[in-house]
Write a protein that binds this DNA or RNA. Structure first.
Length: 411
RNA sequence: GCGGGUGUCGUCAAGUGGUUAAGACCUCGGAUUGUGGUUCCGAUAUGCAUGGGUUCGAAUCCCAUCACCCGCCCCA
């Protein structure tokens, strides 16, 4: 035997016994999202590298060190690390800004990030997500959050923690960034290396640093005061208040988290995450927010938007496994032709049916039937001569012999 | 990029220097040429991630490499 070839690190086969769980996620998504008027969209899994550099943001870790990028015909292409940029690209390219707003889209599929794999984190992973275009009012933010919560509920996940925050608009956020930099300046040398880098590039990202020494610095009263100050302008504050009021009325439980920043550059105003305590350290199931300037930044009109994505592997790890479906019937016969004919009749009537293709002994066939099917349909010499079938219920062991055309009614 | 851990059959595993590498499950065959799921018997690793080394002798000790897992970071 020659050397076997393994799956690539950070990728996984989804095996037959796991597929039912994935269908559950996809079918529930279709069902729930359709009720809210969302239409599915499927975009390519690779795009121009520039789309992600401009879309996701070139200060993000995703763009800086996690993209699978390759050259082909002098073009730089990248396997999508997330799908918002791709959907926005398609929105612009297909003139969807001219459709009657809102334009509501959903998607699911594989994403690729070159990260160190660990629990809840793969290099090829799958996301399901929604994007809503054209509505600047907080009704849109409320609807997508409600949609996320109801999707999780439909899957049977009720007790997850919803966290929300407002990042303000570019104007008020600039002022806030400036204040944070000012108050942290004396502590600059005490910050961790990463935070020192973030200090210039994206000071907001300092706030969710996990390093203890940094957390301590942020706990200092004079610094905490600035961090927790309500920096958002009145317009943004009103937007956020309205959102919370909708969530309250819809019975969505949430916590405000001032430190919730999110790692992608395109967000403004509303950001949110949904977390679970049962996922180990990669505890976010859902992340999203509002991105009012992304469409314009990618060359489209000034169209506000809001959306989120969920990690499907993480969802599955929170949900109970699904057993593989049993066959409705397994035909036990040594007459392959007769078995073929009966199997096809039943399959055409919608039943899941198999029979032995290798002419095994009767007992072996029955053994196989008992392991894989609800009923054994015995089609031996006697039955064939009489135009009958013996139908054996493999759970109760009850067996009856009936005319062939009565079989369907019994299984 | 930085830490920690683990690699023995398809799967789970015993074995911690001494002859032929336990056992269980799965799979396959037989007991049983038309009655299974219970039972009984049998088959299945010339090899212990890979490559070196130490030794009379290595799955076991040493070194290197590889793979996977977990944590940090980041994110879904």
């Amino acid at each position: 035997m020659s050397k076997i070839i393994n799956v690539i690190k950070g990728t996984k086969d989804i095996l037959p016994q796991d597929v039912a769980a994935w269908h559950r996620l996809e079918e529930t998504a279709l069902e729930v999202f359709t009720k809210y008027g969302y239409k599915e969209i499927r975009t390519p899994i690779f795009e121009a590298t520039e789309l992600f550099a401009r879309g996701v943001g070139d200060t993000t870790d995703i763009v800086n060190k996690e993209m699978y990028t390759f050259e082909k015909s002098d073009r730089s292409l990248t396997l999508r690390p997330e799908n918002t940029a791709g959907v926005v690209r398609s929105f612009i390219e297909n003139g969807m800004a001219r459709l009657s707003a809102p334009v509501k889209l959903w998607y699911h599929g594989p994403m690729f990030r070159y990260e160190r794999p660990q629990a809840g984190r793969q290099r090829q992973f799958h996301q399901v997500g929604v994007e809503m275009f054209g509505i600047k009012q907080p009704t849109a933010d409320a609807e997508v959050i409600l949609l996320a919560v109801n999707y999780l509920k439909a899957l049977g996940l009720n007790d997850l923690l919803v966290e929300i925050n407002s990042l303000g608009c570019p104007t008020c956020r600039e002022a806030y960034k400036k204040k944070i930099k000012e108050v942290l300046k004396p502590e600059f040398d005490n910050l961790c290396e990463d935070c020192q880098n973030r200090y210039e590039k994206n000071p907001l990202r300092l706030l969710d640093c996990k390093v203890e020494s940094c957390k301590e610095i942020f706990e200092k009263p004079e610094i905490k005061k600035v961090i927790q100050s309500d920096f958002v302008c009145e317009e943004c504050a009103e937007h956020f208040r309205e959102l919370k009021s909708y969530l309250d009325k819809m019975g969505v439980k949430y916590q405000e988290n001032k430190l919730l920043v999110r790692g992608l550059d395109y967000y403004n105003r509303t950001v949110f995450e949904i977390k679970s305590n049962n996922l180990g350290s990669q505890n976010a199931v859902c992340g999203g927010g509002r991105y009012d300037s992304l469409v314009r930044n990618l060359g489209g009109d000034d169209v506000p938007a809001v959306g989120w994505a969920m990690g499907m592997e993480r969802l599955n790890s929170l949900l109970p496994a699904i057993d593989m479906a049993k066959l409705d019937a397994y035909i036990v016969s040594n007459d392959s032709t007769q078995a073929f004919v009966l199997a096809e009749e039943l399959r055409n009537a919608g039943k899941i049916v198999e029979f032995d293709l290798s002419n095994k002994k009767f007992t072996k066939q029955l053994e196989k039937a008992s392991k894989s099917a609800k009923f054994a349909l015995i089609l031996g010499e006697d039955e064939i001569n009489n135009g009958t079938v013996s139908v054996k219920n493999l759970e109760t062991s009850e067996q009856v012999t009936v005319q062939r055309d009565k079989v369907l009614a019994l299984i």
